[in-house]
Every structure is written in structure tokens, then in C-alpha cells.
Amino acid sequence: MEYPVWLWHWDGPDALPWARARRIDLTPEARERKARAVVGHRSQVEPLSDRPGDEVLLRPDMLAHFARPWETVLVAEPGDGDPFDELHAREEDPWDVRTSWYERRKRALTLAVLPHERYAVGLEVGCSVGALAEDLLGRCDAVVAVDGSVAALERVAGAEGLRTAHASLPEDWARLEEELGDGPVELAVLSEVGYFLSPRRLAELADRVGALVAETETATVLACHWRHEIVGWPLTGDQVHAIVGDRLAAHGLERRSHLVEEDVVLTVWAVPDR
């Protein structure tokens, strides 16, 4: 669910997508606690000083929206657009993945912990500009790089054996399966993407990925994530790996490697040697 705050001030109720709106009635206790919380946010509800520019930010007409006996929330619509499309359109390499030592070292670690020398088809979810997908070609006959951002996919360099697919996962999984075709996908990589999903969407994606690779002889899933807080998003890297590992266990994949550093966590799950 999404919570409108400044929409009331900037646009007003006519801008609200009412088809996605839901009303949540509040108990008297919840209203009282909420009112105390709002008043406690002193930098927003009181002037910072008597100097020009330090006037109160949230005036009574704005605060009135938060004193009502209900909340208005919006049902989120994942998959309708990508939050990073504008970023990739504006910047050639938003996270400096081709130049920063952190990113280059992380890709080297990713390749080093893969338990098998060779895979038929590898899948990378959330490929951004494709730096890791290009490196995975050294270990895979073919790589399918997926991203929800059209602008990001336009930055992926053309290389033999590398295909791109525009999809917001897990919602567009059926479309991705058409792109993958009938060949066995033995490797799936989730790098720096899990914390941009809700826990529910991440669990569904891990289920899909586990089912995709589980029946192959060299089934491998690799996840790699930044361990610090991702401001504005619900999960940390450690939480992402806990959710993924729990879902992959249901498909018979066991943890093979687990590297934890101050900045990064990298985990490999694979089927037991057959």
C-alpha cells in the first residue's frame, strides 16, 4: 500500500487515483496516538524561528487531512513502471558498476563462488547496464539479462550469447518464460535487486527462480546484496537472503557458499551433487 502525504497539498483530491484508493477506519486509540505523533514532529508543525523562511511548514489546513477518523491509502501497482527508468535515462552508469572497485571486486567474487565451471543458460534479474551479465558469459553458453527499465536495457552492450528481456518480476514471469524458450536455465543471479521488492514479491520471485532451475544437474542460484540500509525501501541485504534461502529450500536447493563482509553479503544455493 502507498500513503499519500504531500499529494493533498500539491494536487488535491482530484489528482487521487480513486480506483486504487482504500479507506481504513481508525479506532479512537489509534487517532489519539497519531495526533500525539504529529504534534511531536515539532520541526514540521512549529516555526523553526522567528526569521523569514522559518515559518511553520504544515499549516492547519494541511494537518486537517491527518486528523480525520480514517486513512486513505492506495493499492500499489508494481510492474506498471520502473522507478529506475528515469535514472538510467539520465545517467550512463548510475552506480558506476564499470569503474568502481567495489563493483568490480564484487563481480569477481560472484564468478569465483559459482560451484560449476560451466552453465548452459544463465539468468540475471535486475541487470541494469549489463556489466555482470557480460562477465557471466565467460561461464555460460548464453545469458538472458532482465530489467524493468527500458532505458537500462538500452545501455547493455551487444555481445554474442547475451540477450535482454524487458520484464518487471515476478509479475511478468509468463512473458519471461516465453523469452527463455525451452532450453534449461541452470543459473539464476539476483544481484542488488532484492531489497527493491516487497517481502511478498521477493518470496514469489524466489519461488519462480527455484522452480526454474531446480530440475537441472547444475542448478545454482546466487544472490549478492549491499548490507547497509537502503533508504526508502523495506528490506536489508541480510533480510533478502533470508527470504530467498527459505523459498529455495522448498525446491531442494541448499546453501553452498555464504560470504559476509561489512558491505556485502553473497550467497550461493545449489542442488546437492547428484
Rank of each mutant, 00 (worst) to 15 (best):
D25T: 07
V231E: 14
G232T: 07
S168E: 10
H251D: 11
R105L: 07
E46G: 00
E134N: 12
P78R: 01
L180Q: 10
V38W: 07
V113P: 02
L222C: 05
G181P: 03
P184L: 03
V264P: 03
P60T: 10
R200Q: 14
E215M: 10
I24V: 15
L57Q: 00
L180V: 11
R139Q: 10
H65D: 06
L48R: 11
A21R: 08
V264C: 11
E177I: 08
V75M: 15
R59F: 13
E55Y: 00
C224K: 00
V271K: 06
D96S: 12
E179S: 08
H41V: 04
V271E: 00
R36W: 01
T110Q: 04
L235Y: 05
P115E: 04
E71M: 13
E117C: 13
P17E: 13
L57H: 00
L136E: 01
R200W: 14
D61I: 12
L132H: 07
P52Y: 00
W70M: 12
H9L: 05
L253D: 02
R105Q: 08
V73Y: 01
L74F: 03
V143R: 04
L58C: 01
R51F: 02
V264Y: 02
L190D: 02
E215P: 02
L248N: 13
E179Y: 02
G252F: 14
R227W: 03
R274W: 05
E178A: 08
S43R: 14
F84N: 09
G245K: 01
R155L: 14
A133Q: 01
R274A: 15
D172K: 07
P272A: 09
L58A: 01
E179D: 05
L132D: 09
R98C: 05
R118N: 14
S128T: 11
D82H: 05
S49T: 03
G79F: 10
E124R: 07
P13V: 06
A211D: 14
E262Y: 04
H41I: 04
A112P: 00
S149K: 06
R139M: 12
D238F: 09
H116C: 13
H116E: 13
V221S: 06
R274L: 11
V56T: 01
A142V: 09
A67K: 09
A188E: 06
R118C: 13
H241C: 12
T99I: 12
P184A: 06
G194A: 15
A219T: 00
V244A: 11
R36C: 02
V244E: 09
W18H: 05
H116V: 10
A159K: 15
P69G: 11
L259V: 15
D54C: 05
Y195K: 04
F66W: 05
W8G: 08
K106I: 10
E32N: 07
A270E: 06
A145T: 11
S198Q: 03
E186G: 02
L87Q: 09
E186K: 01
A174I: 02
P4G: 06
L180M: 12
E229N: 03
V5Q: 09
D11F: 08
R256M: 06
A133P: 07
R274D: 15
R105G: 07
W269E: 05
V193A: 05
R68L: 10
V221F: 05
T218A: 14
A242V: 14
D182C: 06
F66K: 01
P13A: 12
D238N: 09
G81T: 13
D85Q: 06
R155D: 14
S191I: 09
W95N: 02
T110R: 01
A67S: 08
L153N: 12
E117L: 13
E261N: 09
E217T: 07
